[in-house]
Design a protein around this nucleic acid. Structure first.
Lengths: 163, 163
DNA sequence: CGTAAATACTTTCCTGGGAAACAATCAACA
DNA sequence: TGTTGATTGTTTCCCAGGAAAGTATTTACG
């Protein structure tokens, strides 16, 4: 058997230059990698990242309005519309048109949605960089904290309280 | 004039739940934000992120092969093909078919490519979170360092040498 | 009340990026 | 040398996601 090494594989000595110091580039690489890992973990579950995060937020905020959900997850309203329609078709969420504003849509998890979420929730742990041996506990906590600060999100639990 | 505040704007008190602690989510938000900032800075320059990073890497690695460039930037070969074709059409890069392997393509910046790059390079600084007042110097350095570790990239300059 | 503007979501259309099939070239080896 | 298989890049086709226009409902105000 041959060494499956081609000239292409000397990726190591490509000089990245200022790219290696450009946050946007690093974030993009991290994004690709985390997405790959997601699809690896959720393989064949026909649940996509946006759907999982939508289910999570709906679960924590029953009767949240669709527009607010979209805004929270940085998903464009047009796309959220399709996404929710799909979740609705699969009976994972319930669309409620409130009487006091019939333009809007309120969202709740169905029983089925809750159980699906409970079932797949453990998989999220598999995505943890600590689990994957990429970072230490401290590094992981620090990284997330810095990212939250970068994007202007509220501090996580472990940063708010000291217990 | 009315307060442009609608019920939708109480985004602050949406409970993110475990999402707030999920690295993949934070990375996605950061990605969206850095992309927005890129397009803000490079507005109307018809240079897209992948094109800028390609130019940068080609500049630092003259005669790099197209496949290796794609692999380095995590851009799929099919897309790199179009991207390079576009840069070629605009005379920013030169495609060289080497005699010793006529399947492959070697890339160099043209004179025009170099000057375009030099001209827009300062804009990259505008994307720096320190410049934008989002992070301190130390936080920025730390964040990038952690991201590099997460994705398995070589440490940056400031981590290698201590001068 | 009635009309105009704002809001919330949806639909339509289009572009960018991915997967898979393809073409060209090179390497291996009888 | 000739044939098989691997490598490199390209083309084709398809789908997710974005922008803009459209629909329904509500609010503002004369």
């Amino acid at each position: 058997m041959q060494l499956a090494m081609t000239r292409q594989d000397d990726q190591a000595n490509v000089e990245l230059g200022e790219l290696n110091d450009l946050l946007g580039f690093l974030v993009r690489i991290a994004q690709i990698q985390t997405f790959d890992q997601f699809f690896e973990a959720f393989d064949m579950q026909d649940l996509r990242p946006g759907e999982v995060s939508s289910l999570l937020v709906i679960g924590h905020n029953p009767c949240i309005r669709q527009g607010l959900l979209a805004q929270t997850l940085r998903i464009k309203p047009a796309q959220m519309s399709k996404l929710i329609r799909s979740l609705d078709k699969r009976r994972l969420v319930e669309r409620i048109i409130p009487e006091d504003d019939r333009r809007s849509v309120e969202l709740r998890l169905t029983r089925k949605g809750e159980s699906v979420l409970d079932h797949y929730r453990p998989m999220l742990n598999a995505l943890d960089p600590v689990q994957r041996g990429k970072l230490s506990e401290d590094e992981n906590r620090l990284l997330k904290s810095l990212l939250r600060k970068l994007v202007g999100l509220e501090p996580g639990r472990e940063e708010r309280k000291q217990d």
